[in-house]
């Protein structure tokens, strides 16, 4: 315990530890584990032990630099960008995404909002690697996403459902979750509709157990098996791939609708950011 604290401390300090950093992700997770009997939450003791030294913390620190440095043709930092709570306000912003943005007249998730900030505010071309490279711990996207998301650690998921578009997207996402199709007849519910189910040895999270689902959709997370920090969009892509369905477009509204629904399913549960997964 003592060792863990020592290792975790410098990172927390470096990130300008604010109120939400009081309870580190591993303690947020531990509280969930204590509150419910869940084979999914407890499946990897190894990960639980490693979480205090989660490599995603370092990815987030790189993101802090990128976020606050003036960049792009317009030479402005991302502090000029609005992630839902006003320009530059990050605390609690991520747990309230996806949400409706007036400037684009669109419901947007974190990834799309970062793209918007990079292209419209910083002036990056859409095919600039800063914008186009979405995956891997080394990508600007993963660094920035992780930094922004960490400012919501321990806070309750609460994507707004006030604007009619927010409601429409959430409801369409629900339809998508239960929509069977394809050569294997799957929908998301086939594998995430019941607690304690396994694909081979992997315990699956149930969408209907909010304490499980909050961990399931707490991304960015360091995926030990991939040795990389991964995003929500990466997870969605992976599950559609397993389902034998086409590649989902991370910039399309379909993926955002699905995220509006899955975030609503975790409403009120604390976010684990960054998380660590198999």
């Amino acid at each position: 315990m003592f060792k863990k604290a020592l290792l975790a401390l410098p990172v927390a300090l470096a990130l300008g530890a604010t109120a939400h950093a009081e309870k580190p992700p591993e303690e947020v997770l531990q509280d969930l584990i204590d509150s419910v009997d869940s084979a999914y939450l407890t499946q990897s003791e190894q990960n639980l032990l490693m979480m205090a030294d989660n490599p995603a913390m370092w990815t987030g620190m790189d993101g802090e630099d990128l976020f606050h440095t003036p960049r792009g043709p317009n030479n402005v930092s991302m502090e000029a960008c609005d992630f839902g709570k006003g320009p530059g306000v990050l605390e609690g912003a991520y747990v309230e995404l996806p949400r409706y943005f007036e400037d684009t007249d669109r419901v947007m998730d974190l990834e799309n909002r970062i793209v918007h900030c990079m292209t419209e505010v910083q002036g990056f071309a859409a095919d600039d690697p800063a914008v186009a490279r979405r995956h891997g711990s080394g990508s600007d996207h993963m660094k920035i996403q992780t930094y922004i998301a960490m400012q919501s650690n321990g806070m309750e998921w609460n994507n707004p459902l006030d604007h009619p578009l927010e409601i429409a997207m959430r409801d369409a996402g629900e339809v998508m979750f239960y929509r069977r199709s394809g050569i294997a007849d799957f929908n998301c519910n086939t594998c995430h509709g019941e607690s304690g189910k396994r694909i081979r040895a992997s315990v699956l999270p149930s969408k209907d157990v909010p304490q499980e689902w909050t961990k399931a959709m707490s991304w960015p997370a360091f995926r030990v098996g991939h040795d990389n920090v991964r995003s929500s969009q990466h997870r969605i892509r992976g599950c559609y791939w397993q389902m034998r369905m086409p590649r989902i477009n991370p910039d399309g509204d379909a993926s955002i609708a699905l995220m509006s629904y899955w975030t609503d399913a975790s409403r009120g549960q604390p976010a684990i950011l960054p998380d660590m997964k198999r």
């Binding site: 009619p164 409601i167 369409a172 339809v175 477009n249 399309g252 509204d253 379909a254 993926s255």
Partner: peptide, 24 residues
Amino acid sequence: YTAMTPEELAEHLIFEANGFVLDQ
């Protein structure tokens, strides 16, 4: 979007709004 039922919107997002790579 708000004039559609959730089912209609889901179909629209999947097939008409560049939601998936449908031509592979």
